[in-house]
Amino acid sequence: MISAGCDIGSLTSKGVIMENGRIKATAVIASTNNPESSAEKVMNLAVEKAGMAMDDIDVCVGTGYGRDRIPFVQDTASEIVCHGTGARWLVPGAMTVIDIGGQDCKVIRLDAGGQVEKFITNDKCASGTGRFLEVMARVLGVSLDELGTFSAGTMSPITFASTCTVWAQADVIRHLNDGHPLEDIGAGINSAMANRVSMLVSGSKPKPEICMTGGVSKNRGVVQTLEKLLGSRIHLPRRADPQLAGAIGAALLAQKNGRGGAN
């Protein structure tokens, strides 16, 4: 059976095509301001990569904030359910999922069967989301990938007093003007990010194994600091891009529920 998952987020749209529970093709694009066209674009790209046609997909499930406007899906599912399902597939045995995307942070606790037990999200404050790192990388004039490498390169990260993205941005500019090394500032930013996330994670009483998905899990500095703060190892997905967790979860649900099956 060919199943597909389509995750339309506010910043990126993701498409995954699976054949009998194995990934055939994936696609990630920047979201347009129209969820319909984002969905069409990303799924066409995934279908093309898989060497298929849209008609070959037996069932497609939509998720993400734009899920209700995807024209071709048979069903939709919440982001929490899809991210939980996708994370369990990416990191088998994961009981706690930390997913940090461009505009939000979710902490999901799963039961032994992979069902969502409880979750906490922050989508009200940019601090503790990928947006915080994006803003700081821009001020520092480095890429997000480079920012992630800074923590390993310094023993003296700068401490940031404010969690607010706006105030921290002003602090970064001040430190740059004072001539502090880029590595120390960047490492401090990664630690500030990890601090903020650890508060949310601790509030959800995490159980091992802990895994991390979403774009921010690619930042080693954030992950390693978070491991120290939580006193626990954080497992990272190896089977696919961690940004695809939601779309993978949607494709797995599509496969489980079958053609036209209600969730």
């Binding site: 301001n33 505009q103 009200k124 404050c125 940019a126 947006r131 803003v135 607010c164």
Partner: peptide, 14 residues
């Protein structure tokens, strides 16, 4: 709808 300055800025631009 956004309270955060960073998110409100994006909302305003949209």
């Amino acid at each position: 709808s956004s309270q955060c300055v960073i998110f409100a800025e994006s909302e305003v631009i949209s």
